[in-house]
Write a protein that binds this DNA or RNA. Sequence first.
DNA 1: CCCATAAATGGCAGCGCTACCATTTTTCGG
DNA 2: CCGAAAAATGGTAGCGCTGCCATTTATGGG
Lengths: 347, 347
Amino acid sequence: MNDEATGPGRRRTTEQRAAVTLADVARVAGVSEITVSRILRNTGPISERTRARVMAAVEQVGYVPNRIAGTLASATSNLMGVIIPSLSNIVFPEVLQGIHAALATSGFQPVVGVTDYNLDVEERLVRALLAWKPSAMIIAGFDHTETTRRILQQSRTRIAELMDIDAVPIDIAVGLSHRSAGYDTGRYLIGRGYRRFGYVGHDWNADRRARRRWDGLCAALGDAGLALVDQALFDGPSSTQAGRAMCDTLLRRTPSLDVVVFSNDDMAVGGVFHCYGRGLVPKRDVALFGFNGLDIGQALPVPLSTVRSKRYQIGKIAVETILQHPERQSGPIIIDTGYEILEGGTA
Amino acid sequence: MNDEATGPGRRRTTEQRAAVTLADVARVAGVSEITVSRILRNTGPISERTRARVMAAVEQVGYVPNRIAGTLASATSNLMGVIIPSLSNIVFPEVLQGIHAALATSGFQPVVGVTDYNLDVEERLVRALLAWKPSAMIIAGFDHTETTRRILQQSRTRIAELMDIDAVPIDIAVGLSHRSAGYDTGRYLIGRGYRRFGYVGHDWNADRRARRRWDGLCAALGDAGLALVDQALFDGPSSTQAGRAMCDTLLRRTPSLDVVVFSNDDMAVGGVFHCYGRGLVPKRDVALFGFNGLDIGQALPVPLSTVRSKRYQIGKIAVETILQHPERQSGPIIIDTGYEILEGGTA
DNA sequence: CCCATAAATGGCAGCGCTACCATTTTTCGG
DNA sequence: CCGAAAAATGGTAGCGCTGCCATTTATGGG
C-alpha cells in the first residue's frame, strides 16, 4: 500500500531516478521478493507458472541484480582476488588465461591487482582485495612481507600461491620446482657434450625464481666437476633487447663459450637475434638455451632449446583446485605441474 | 550493554568465529562506529587524539574493512569493470597495463572479463560486471549485441569503448582510426615505390579492426590506380606461426610480389622468420609491413617496418578520462590517440 | 473426503557500513 | 565570562538482498 513512499527520505537527494530493485520486480509480478530472489538464483521449488511470470517482469522492468547487496546478505561473494607481479612479462597474462578459462563457467569474477614486483604494493593490494570478501586469493610467488603472510593466513579464505613449489605455502601451491628445472637443464646440456657454460641473466634481486634456476644449474655443473665460465647480468626486467645486448657483452668478453644459458626465453630469443645479426649459427657456433617454452621461441626459424613451464596449466589448476575444495584443508596442498625439456635446435 | 548478544541468532550456524566489524573497533576504542568509519575514510573533522586511539584499536583487533557493506551503504563502489576479447593477443595485456597504471593510485580495482571474441559471452559478462555496480565499464571494441548496447546505455555509469574511433561510441571512445591507419600504410608504401602488393591476414570475420585497416589499404591502392595482387588469409587468430605459414603460401603462389602487408605484427614477424628460413632478405627480396609496433618486431635483427598503435596509452587515457569526469557528459567523447609509422628496415 | 506429506510461497530480521541529521564540546571575539 | 560559531562526535535508519522459520497450497494414499 505504501509502494511509493520512500520512507522519511534520505539518499536519492540528487535527481537520480531510483535503481530498479527486487521489490519492483516482485510488485510487477505479484509475488514476494524472496520468490523472485529464489527464481533468479535457481534455488528452492518454484512452479513453472510463477517462474515465467517473474522472468517476464524482470525483462519488463529491466532489472539488474545487485551482487553487492546479495553478497552482504549471504556472505558469499563470487569474487576471486588475483595478484600478479607484472603484465609486461607474457608469462603472467598466460597464467591469467588459465585462471579465466577455469573461472569462465563458474560464475566467479576475478579482481586483479598488479604489484610491479613491489612487496609493499603487494601488501596494499592484499588488504584492498580482501576488503571485497573474495572466496579465494590467487597470488603469484612466495615472496611476501611478514604482514602480508599473516593477513592472508588469518583471512579464512583459500590462498593459492602460484609458479613455485620450492617452499611451504600458506595454503595451496601450484607450480614447478625451479631449482630442479635449473638442475635438469645443466644435466641435459652436459649430457649433450657442452663444457664451457656461460649465463645471461636479468633482475638479479627481483626475480627469485630465475635465481633458483641459476642455483640448480650451478649445482648440476658442480656435481659434474664444472662451473660457469662467465656470466652477464642485465640490471632490469627481462626482454629480447636486453638478452641481445647481454649476449653480445658475454660473447665478446669470453668467445670461447660453447653454450649460453639464458634466464628465460625472452632473453634467449634476444640471444638468437644477436647471432643472426652477427652471422653466427646457433648450436654450430654457440649453443643457446632458454626457459619457459614461449611461442615466440618455438616459432623461430630454428626452434629454441628450452624448458617448457606450464603457465596456463598453473592458473587453470589453481582455480580448479579452489573450486573443488572451497574450504581450507588441514595441511598445505602442493601441486607439481612439472616441466619438460624442449630439444629445439639451438642446443 | 548487549554487546555479546547476537540477536535471535541466525547466521553463524557454523562454528566460524564472527568477523571483526567496525563495531568491535569502536567498542575497543571507546568511540562510536561512525567515528571509526570517518577516520578510516579520512572524512570529517577528527581530533588527533581519537584518531590515534582508533588506529591502535584497528591494529589490535586486526580489522579488515568490508567494502561490500560500505558500497551498499554509500552506493559508490570503487570497482571498475574491464572487458577484453582475449589475453593471448599481447595487445590486450598491454591495454590492461595502461589501465592498471592509471588505476594504481586511485583506489579503484578492476574486475576483468574475457570474451574470447564471442559477443554473447560479452553480453553475459556485461550483465555480470554491472551487478557489482562498478563506477565505470571499459570494454574493448565497438561490436556488441543490441542488448549489450542497450544495457550499457541504460546503466548510468561511464562506458569507455577502446581501440577504435571509427564509429559513434555509447559514451567514450579511445583509440585510433584503423581505416586511416590502413590508408596511410598504403600511401607510405606506394611512396616508397612498391607496386605489387600482397596481403596476409587472419580471422577475417572476428577481427573487425584488421578488416578496417584492410579497407583503408585497399582504398589507398585504389586511389593510386593499384590493387592487391594477391592475399592469403589464415582462418584463426593471429600468431607468428600462422604468419609464417601464410607468407609461405602467398609467396609460393605469387612470387612476383614486391611488398607484403600483414594484418598485424605477430603475423609479420612470422613473415620475417619465413624469409630467414628461406634465405630471403627482407626488403631486398620482398618488403614486409606489419601493424602495432610490438617490442618483438622492433627487437628483430632488422626492425620491422610497421605502424605503432599506442595500446598502453589507450588504456591509460581511458581510465584517466573516466577518473576526471565520473559523471556522463551530454554527448559522446572521442579521443584519438593516433598512430605513427615506424620506418624500420623491412620496407 | 480426510489427513499426512510434499511443494510453493511469504514475513521478517539483519549482513556491515554510511548518509543524514542531530547533539555535545571546544574555541574565541567582545 | 557569555553567546555564537566551529569542531568533534553520536543516533538511527536504511542500502538491497538472503537465511531462517513459518504458512499456505497442491498431491495422494486409504
